[in-house]
Design a protein around this nucleic acid. Structure first.
Length: 290
DNA sequence: CGTCCAGGTCTAC
DNA sequence: GGTAGACCTGGACGC
């Protein structure tokens, strides 16, 4: 294996990043999001560098993220891969204010060792598409759809241009995406044409949370759940991801027979702009805590 | 074999 | 603004 790059596992505020407690999304080369589970020892992902495909392995060694592949990519491809990986682990995010807030918190003090980072996709477009593939279906269906999409991209998740140029029949007959096909194709068209810049949504100076939420909600196939989920992956942690998995899990953990969404939101309001992240960590503590 | 529903969303009242 | 009903798919059930 050849080392492409090594990145110190530190966030933008100098806070530690726990590789094993990064909330990852599992599954083959394409890393579907949303099904957030405990981390494995290493992540594998196929990137495309021009015409070539490069299979990359990411793992931890001595508090550093080691990025390796069988053969060394060009300098340009290596830079692109490093950039993608910076976004995936969101190295540019500063979680230290969150850690300062929960340091003495009964529920979440265990997180300050560096847990709570959510593994994103290299592009916001990919996160949006995959999020649509998690809606109103079983996880096996999500894997089938995202797997088919990755296959369409030769093992690496396809870009917007490629998905925009993919015929409706492929979405219907091969990926079996049902009504989601038209949604994904339309979003791909808008991104490819330049009329929609999803990656810009990461820019906190250009857009506040409300603006980002409005843009996401305007996308076909993205509703309250989808917008909240994508916003988590954007590092905008205020919104709670409320759906048919989180609601019952919250009720079970909190020992409540029922709880309205507004009640759940109020219970996490004290975490301010990190309410959604706190909610996630509360729900997934049994996955991440040793 | 029919019905239900899975980490929802859209449309039409 | 709030809420039924439809929606692709396919696996899990009851009959």
């Amino acid at each position: 294996m050849r080392t492409i790059c090594e990145l110190p596992l530190r966030g933008a505020g100098g806070e530690p990043i726990s590789f094993s407690r990064t909330i990852h999304s599992h599954g083959c080369a394409s890393l579907p999001p949303a099904r957030l589970e405990p981390s494995p020892l290493a992540y594998h992902r196929r990137f495309r560098a021009g015409r070539r495909a490069i299979d990359v392995t990411m793992r931890e060694r001595k508090s550093r993220l080691i990025v390796e592949s069988a053969s060394l990519p060009s300098a340009r491809a290596a830079a692109a891969i490093e950039g993608a990986i910076r976004r995936m682990f969101r190295f540019d995010a500063d979680l230290s204010p969150f850690y300062a807030r929960i340091g003495c918190d009964d529920q979440l003090a265990w997180v300050v060792c560096g847990a709570g980072r959510m593994l994103a996709s290299p592009s916001v477009f990919e996160d949006v598409v995959k999020t649509i593939c998690t809606t109103n279906c079983t996880w096996s269906a999500t894997l089938r759809m995202t797997g088919a999409l990755s296959e369409r991209g030769g093992g690496a998740f396809p870009g917007a241009e490629e998905l925009a140029g993919t015929p409706e029949a492929w979405y219907r007959d091969v990926a079996k995406m049902g009504y989601r096909g038209a949604y994904v194709r339309e979003i791909a068209r808008a991104v490819a044409s330049g009329e929609l810049d999803l990656d810009a949504l990461s820019d906190g100076r250009r857009f506040d949370d409300a603006a980002v939420e409005a843009i996401l909600l305007a996308l076909p196939g993205i509703g309250q759940y989808g917008a909240a989920h994508v916003m988590q992956l954007l590092g905008r942690h205020r919104q709670l991801v409320l759906d048919s998995w989180t609601r019952p899990k919250y009720r079970r953990l909190a020992g409540k027979k029922q709880a309205k969404d507004s009640t759940i939101r109020r219970a996490f309001a004290r975490y301010g702009e990190y309410a959604g992240l706190a909610f996630w960590l509360y729900l997934t503590r049994d996955w991440l805590e040793e």
